[in-house]
Design a protein around this nucleic acid. Structure first.
Lengths: 336, 336
DNA sequence: TTGAAAGCGCTAACAA
DNA sequence: TTGTTAGCGCTTTCAA
């Protein structure tokens, strides 16, 4: 194994000079820098990660905790993870993958052993048991999602409340007066996942504000669930002309169900989803949607974290504004 | 920070004794072990990962390289990753996540800096450019998938050839004589992904062996592609009664398309998929399928790797036998 | 602009 | 069964 002393000898300088040339933490003359660089190349030198971590108390590794639970759309998690890895690499960091399953002990372990410098935690609940722990750790963290008490923590997420409102506003502008929100599976609400509740709040508030009739229905991801929800909605709200869907798994089946029940999309029924753009674009009827920007969230989370590692102050809360793209599933309300 | 010398002093022993108590690499008397354990608990001691890695030349971290390309079913990758993390934790290892994008340089980097002890590489191509590198690294690796020349490498995968055969055999036993394979998107074949080709080989060989008429159609994941493939199949093979689908993205739309074209599943057409059980179970018509055992693959890959790290010899090739589950999409050929 | 040298916290060879 | 101690390869202070 080639070590820093080998490089130093080969370049005719001291080890510390090589170290500084590598880190840029002190000025190096043009000439020595070049000699060092060519020695490194010639010898194929790679600094030992463990030795570095020990001497500098920086591992240059971030922990990413991914959720596993029901009702979470897997491609969103994956895209987020990939974006975190890519962005982290751009900041000279690697990413250690942890599962929710490991729980608080897992977080404590990687932090206390100095395996990682900082943590990104996905799928934060309103009263997440990990919050006190994260506050007490000596390493910075960023949470995806907003808990009830975000004080002292750094959180980022799509502004789901505004997303819910934006959907309603768009439907309102198209003349729709009676609308429904088809949401996540019931268990998501039961475990108090903030983002699901925020959509409901935004949806309901905007509907009330616009004097519209509205209702909210959670929906399972199971095969027949979309159909049943569609049937119930139509029987309970015969005048329904606008539907907001916040549930990736049932978006397609739900539209199919409405059409099988005799409603044309968007002729009789306008549909807006809150989901990844890729999903909205891929359906037979491309769906007007508010994007779930997982890649951007991942990138931003890493940037917040690297700033915190650099000692730069960052805002406690970052809410990404919703962005709506019109596609083929929305139309003005039929005058008939 | 609490260090091993603190624990040693607190327990009235030497640091090495603490180290050995932790690693179990030499016998410790009952009494000292207990004293050490309670000191550790009392002080909240956690060994520093970097220091450990430096002194022992083991980081206890595995690298996992995940694919990003088109035609790869995201939930399969995610489930695999989760299974790798879970199993690795059971063997006292953590998992560093790398993307395909990082390429050979990424592999070399994490190996040469001793950031990881070993590597798991997914989505191996027939002539994968990473093979020579993996052979030359001083760290063990396991590949998911089989390249053309697996010599000197450790590979594991589902036996896709046998899976293709198994599907045909089941259809043959049900009396079907004319069948088609709807495969992955064309780009998957173009880039020579072994598993896709192996399914084709198994499918074709078994069909020939049984004197059946067969054809193979790649299929895009795009919205209308399933419908077009279904139409072409029916016009070109009017006697078609058995379809094998090896393409998660189009399984559902394909069945819908066949039904819209007037064919009942399984009344007129029997369908067998090669896909994750969860997907097969979740469709409106639960689909008879050969399971894609991503969780098992992940666990087995880690086990192979930890054995290699322990110096135990492991087989170069591991092929998991296909397992077929009968569901509602297959029936004996209609006698009419 | 550079060098010397003292650790960082742990493991494992050696010695007892 | 346990202790002593020499590193592991790097960073960073101090000194020049």
């Amino acid at each position: 194994m080639v070590k820093i002393t080998d490089v130093a000898r080969h370049a005719g300088v001291s080890p510390s000079t090589v170290s500084y040339a590598l880190s840029g933490k002190r000025p190096i003359s043009q000439m020595t820098r070049q000699r060092i660089e060519s020695s490194i190349r010639e010898l194929g030198y790679r600094p030992h990660a463990g030795a570095r971590a020990l001497a500098s108390s920086r591992s240059n590794v971030l922990a990413l905790v991914v959720p596993l639970r029901a009702g979470i759309h897997v491609p969103v998690v994956m895209q987020f993870a990939v974006s975190v890895v890519t962005t982290a690499r751009g900041h000279d960091h690697d990413v250690l993958l942890l599962t929710q399953e490991e729980g608080e002990e897992g977080l404590r372990r990687v932090a206390d052993t100095a395996l990682v410098d900082a943590l990104i935690v996905m799928d934060v609940q309103l009263r997440d048991p990990r919050l006190p722990l994260l506050r007490s750790l000596d390493r910075p963290s960023v949470m995806i999602g907003f808990p009830q008490e975000p004080d002292g923590l750094t959180c980022i997420d799509l502004d789901f409340r505004a997303a819910g409102e934006l959907c309603v506003e768009r439907l309102a502008r198209l003349g729709h007066r009676v609308m429904a929100l088809v949401g996540s599976p019931p268990e998501v609400y039961v475990r108090e996942t903030a983002f699901a509740q925020r959509v409901v709040q935004g949806f309901t508030a905007a509907a009330d504000r616009n004097g519209m009739s509205s209702c909210v229905r959670p929906c399972e991801a199971a095969p027949g669930a979309a159909r049943r929800v569609a049937e119930r909605l139509l029987s309970e709200q015969p005048a329904l002309t606008g539907v907001v869907v916040h549930n990736e798994a049932v978006l397609e089946p739900l539209i199919e169900a409405f059409e099988q029940l005799g409603l044309r999309v968007p002729g009789d029924l306008s549909v807006i989803a809150i989901c990844p753009d890729e999903l909205a674009e891929s359906l037979r009827v491309p769906v007007t949607s508010v994007a779930l920007p997982s890649a951007e969230l991942g990138a931003r989370a890493v940037e917040l974290l690297t700033k915190k590692l650099d000692g730069t102050a960052v805002p406690e809360a970052t809410l990404l504004p919703p962005r709506l793209t019109d596609r083929a599933s929305t139309a003005p309300r039929n005058a008939s």
